[in-house]
Simulated assay, not measured.
Amino acid sequence: MTSAPSPQPALARLAELRAGQVCRLPATDACAEAWHQWSQPEIDALRLAYAAGRPLLVQGEPGTGKTQLARAAAEWLGWRLHAETIHPRFEPHELRYRFDAVRRLADAQAGAKRLDRHRYWRPGVLWRAFGWESAQPFMPVAERGRKPAGHVVLIDEIDKADSDLPNSLLDVLAQRSFQVEPVTEPIGGPAVRAPLIIITTNEERDLPAAFRRRCIVLSLAAGDDYAAWLVERGQAHFGRQLHEAGRELALIDETILRAAADQLVTDRRAVESLNRPKPGLAEYLDLLYALEALFEHETDAAVRTAQQKAWLTRLSAYGYLKHQVSDTTSPAHQPSQARQRMGATDAPLVG
C-alpha cells in the first residue's frame, strides 16, 4: 500500500516563521506587489491545519488580511496558489471542474467530426491541487507547467454561497479524493500529498456545523489597540527603506502612518454608531498607497511628509467613509467640510 508523502518538509518550513516577520509578495497577473506581516496565531493555525490534514477556516471582518494569508503561505512554502472567489451563483462542482456545454453544443451543431473533450472541460482549483498531472491536458497551455512542490488552495468568501457549497466539500475533505468524468482514475488519494486548503469567511452567513467541525478555525482580529495594529501593518508595507543621497528613508514617515490610523479609528466609531459598514485595514492601506503615489516625485523627505500630512485628513473622507450619513449631528456627516476645518489645506495636490 502506498503511503502519503510526509508533511514534515512543509511543517519544518512553517516552523521557521517568526511573529512580526515581514515577507514580500511579488506581483502576479492577478495581484499587485504586497507585504505580509506574520502573526503568531497565523503561524500556529497554519501549522496545526497542515499537520492535522484539515482546511484552515479564516474568519473576520473584511480587510483584515484573510485572503492575503493564503498568498503569503504559498510564497513562504514555495508552492503554487490556486484561488477561487465564491459568488452567490457559484455551483459546488466548480471547485472540481467546469464543463462548457454551450461550446460543445456549438461544435456539434457546426458538424465537427470529432468532439475533443479537452476543449470543454476545465479543472477547478481542487482538481489542480489534488491531481496536477491529470489536469494538465485540460488546462490552457499558458497555465501548464512542471509539477509544483506543493499546492495551496484558497476558497475565498465561502459565506457568499448557500449551504450546498460547504456541504459538498465534506466528502472531499474526508476522502481527499474525488472523481471527474473526463478521467478514469480518481483524483487525489492516499499517495497524493494533500494541499494546504485555506477558506475565508466574512461571517455574513452561518456555515454548517458539520463543515465547521472539520476545519481548523482562525479568527483574525486587531485586538484592543486598533490604531497600533494598523500602524504595524502600515510599517510592513511602507516602512521599507529607500536610499536617497546616502540616507535611508522610509517610504512613508511613521507620523503619517499614525495620523491615518487615528483618523480611521475616529471614522469607525462614527459609522459604527449609525450601524454602517466600518472601514478597516484595506481602506487604511488604500489611503497610504495613494499618499505615496501622489507625492512620490517630491525628493525632499521633509516636504513630502508635510504635503502628505496636509492632505491626509481631506482625502481620508473619501477613502474611509463610503456611505452617506443622513444624521447631520454625526461627525461622519459632510466629512470633507469638517475635515478642512481640521487642518487640510488648499496646497497643490502634487509635489
Rank of each mutant, 00 (worst) to 15 (best):
R276V: 09
A236G: 14
G239L: 09
L285A: 01
A250P: 15
Y284V: 15
T201I: 10
R240N: 12
A290C: 04
Y284H: 11
A270P: 05
D225V: 13
E204D: 14
F295P: 05
E204V: 06
K278R: 05
I252K: 09
E204Y: 05
R233L: 04
G280V: 08
L291I: 03
A209W: 03
V217N: 14
R233T: 12
D262Y: 03
N202L: 01
L220E: 13
A259Y: 05
L285I: 15
L220F: 06
G234W: 03
L281P: 01
I252D: 14
L274F: 11
R205F: 14
P277N: 05
E204K: 14
L220R: 13
Q263E: 07
R214W: 01
L249S: 04
L220D: 10
Y284L: 14
L257Q: 00
R213K: 00
A209F: 00
A270T: 09
V231E: 15
Y284C: 03
L291W: 07
A228H: 07
E272G: 10
E283I: 02
Q235V: 09
E292I: 04
T201K: 08
L242D: 13
L294V: 08
L274N: 03
E244S: 13
E272W: 04
E254R: 10
E272L: 10
A293I: 02
L220G: 13
G280S: 11
A228D: 15
A209S: 13
F211E: 04
W229V: 11
R276Q: 09
H237L: 09
E272C: 11
L274A: 15
L288T: 07
I252F: 10
Q235L: 07
H243Y: 03
I256K: 09
Y284K: 06
F295S: 12
L288A: 10
